[in-house]
Amino acid sequence: MIALLGFIPFVSPVNFFQTWWYLLIIPLAFGVSVIYKAIRLPRLDAYWFQVWLMTGQIVLVMLLIAVALALFVQLVVPAV
C-alpha cells in the first residue's frame, strides 16, 4: 500500500540521481563554500563572489582530477 504512494520527499531517495550523481558535486561544493567563507573571510563585503569562486574552483579541480584519473586508468595502466 505504502509503496503505491510513490515519492515522499525526505523519506524516499531521489533515484534520478543514480544516473546523474556527479551533478551533486555542485550543491555539495556550494554548501561547503558558504560555511567555509563565512568562517574564513576577514570581511564579508565580497562574500557571495568568494563563495561562487570557491565553488567553481572545487568543481573545476574535481573535474581535472577525474580527467587525469580516467586517462591514467585508460591509457597508462593498460600500457604497464
Partner: peptide, 22 residues
C-alpha cells in the same frame, strides 16, 4: 556569519536527506 553558517549547514542536511532519503 551566524546566519550564513546556519544556512549552509541546513542546506547540506536538507539536500542530503532529499537526495538519499531517511
Amino acid at each position: 556569519r551566524g546566519w550564513l553558517i546556519m544556512g549552509g549547514v541546513l542546506f547540506l542536511i536538507l539536500v542530503g536527506l532529499f537526495v538519499g532519503g531517511l
